[in-house]
Simulated assay, not measured.
Amino acid sequence: MRIVLAEDSVLLREGLVRLLDEAGHTVVAAVEHADAIVPAVLEHRPDVAILDVRMPPTFTDDGLRAAVRAREAVPGLAVLVLSQYVEESYARDLLADGRGGVGYLLKDRVQDLDALADAVVRVAEGGTVLDPDVVAQLLVPRRVTDPLGSLTAREREVLALMAEGRSNTAIAQRLVVSDGAVEKHVGNLLMKLDLTPSTEDHRRVLAVLAWLDGTRT
């Protein structure tokens, strides 16, 4: 994969370049300022952009806003956002366009080369990757008006694993059930969330968005 990397920490940036190189990818540009992300993406047209959330100039959500602009400027661009914190608003904003090809990974995870490499490939292929720790953080008591209230316990488990970006086969292996059973659970939960077949919407992403809304207190 050809990658544009945006990270203001010199040590982490150089470390990521090395890890990505070891995984067989090529970092075509490594920038340290959020304002440099979109120009780098336009110039190099990478397969994936990997970027921090809190970057100069304000160190708030500059990286995230640049990621949204980059996806608008280069349709189909896969984006993997790194964060030091579990903040569900960032995950939801990334998923908001419903197109897939996005990920939210905690920075602690980048020490695991296999996890990082797997996330890069999955978002490049159009998948959605949420860090397991983010998913765990979001599993809190639901509101009275929980839109997911009609889901069974097993369907909630399947949806939580979908939020991690796992395929039906991976979910089946995790839950020790058949692929057919997972397909049935996915079909049922999509129906219960009123996500009818559509050629325009990424239904799995929309289901994850509904789940994120349902986990807000």
Rank of each mutant, 00 (worst) to 15 (best):
A23M: 14
A34Q: 04
A119E: 05
S178C: 12
P147L: 12
R13H: 13
G187F: 10
V28H: 14
A117M: 08
Q111K: 04
T60G: 04
V110Q: 04
V17H: 05
L148Y: 13
V208L: 00
N168W: 08
H185F: 13
R122H: 12
V121C: 03
L80I: 02
D146Q: 13
S150F: 11
T145Y: 03
G101S: 10
D21Y: 03
L42A: 11
D179P: 07
A124G: 14
E7N: 02
L11F: 15
G103I: 06
G126F: 01
L11K: 05
L116Y: 00
L148Q: 14
G15D: 07
L139M: 10
G103Y: 01
A34K: 06
I171D: 13
L77Q: 00
M162D: 14
E88G: 12
L113Q: 12
Y104N: 11
G63H: 07
T128Q: 05
F59Q: 14
K107E: 03
L95T: 04
G165L: 08
L82H: 00
A96T: 07
R71E: 00
V205D: 13
E87N: 15
R71M: 01
D213P: 01
V68W: 12
T26N: 13
L80S: 02
T60S: 13
L42T: 04
V123D: 13
G63W: 05
A29R: 13
R65F: 03
E157C: 04
A49V: 15
L80N: 04
H25Y: 07
D21W: 08
D93N: 03
E183A: 15
A34C: 09
L77M: 00
V176F: 12
L212P: 03
D35Y: 07
V86L: 15
S83P: 03
V135T: 09
R203T: 02
D213S: 04
Y104T: 06
R166Q: 12
V10Q: 10
I37C: 01
D35P: 09
V41E: 06
A67S: 03
N168T: 15
V182M: 13
V158S: 11
L190I: 11
V17L: 12
E155V: 01
M55C: 08
L159I: 08
S167A: 05
S178W: 03
E7H: 02
K184R: 15
V182A: 07
A170I: 01
R13P: 13
L19E: 02
V123L: 15
D21G: 15
R143Y: 12
A66H: 12
L161E: 11
H202K: 09
S83C: 04
R122M: 09
P147T: 05
R156G: 09
V123G: 14
V27C: 11
A153M: 09
L151R: 01
G180M: 13
I37Q: 00
D194T: 12
L159G: 10
D97M: 14
E14M: 13
E164F: 07
A115V: 10
V120W: 11
V10M: 02
R18K: 15
L5R: 04
D131Q: 10
E155K: 00
S198L: 08
E164Q: 15
